[in-house]
Each structure stands twice: as structure tokens, then as C-alpha cells.
Amino acid sequence: MPRDTSSDVLQGTLDLLVLKSLALGPMHGWGIAQRIQDLSRSAFDVGQGSIYPALMRLERRGWIAAEWGTTENNRRARYYRLTPAGQRQLRQETESWRKYAHAVELVLRAT
């Protein structure tokens, strides 16, 4: 079932944000949500839950890997980490995102 375009964009962006947050080190789902919120200073108003489908998507593509581990409070949690393929992907997406943002910026600046 196709989704509308705006959420496609959102989905792509979310994927990039998840990859970026994992570049800082392995983390569980809640921690990733926190990182995204912190890094973006809460600019992205998406339900925290929506990172889970995103994590599934990324895992399926082999960009991230997951395994169960324990938190410092001795809680069982699923930790995600970036794979080498994921690191490559992150570099590529960051690049293209910058180009894209730059292009949009140029257009908007022109009066």
C-alpha cells in the first residue's frame, strides 16, 4: 500500500537520523529516540514508536545489526549497531542530503 509523498520524505529522513544517532555507538531503541530528540533539539515531532519500523527496515537492509544485551541498570534491551555497510550508507546519505539541502537553500535564497 503506497503512502503519500510527505511521509516518504519523512521516512527517508528518519532512516538517516537513526543511522546518524547510531554512528555515536550502539544503542537500544529508547536511547536512539532520546538521541534524535536531543540532537534535533526536539525539532522532529514524530511518535517515538515510529523508530521501530525504521529500525526493522534498516536491519533488513543490513545497515544495522541488533542483539539483545543488558543496560547499566541490568535491564534486558535490544541494542542496535551500525554495520560497515550502514556506515557507507550514512556517508552517502549525508552527502546527498547536504547537496539537497544546499540546493533548496539556493532556490530559497534567490529572490
Partner: peptide
């Protein structure tokens, strides 16, 4: 509230599995 609809996330997760 911050998490969003649990059922919705479940469904999206299933879609994401392909």
C-alpha cells in the same frame, strides 16, 4: 503519548519486514 499508537507501530513494523 510520546510513543504514539502501539498497534499502528506494530502494523508498520510488519510492513517494514517486507
Amino acid at each position: 503519548v510520546a510513543f504514539g499508537g502501539v498497534e499502528r507501530v506494530r502494523e508498520d513494523h510488519r510492513d517494514a519486514r517486507g
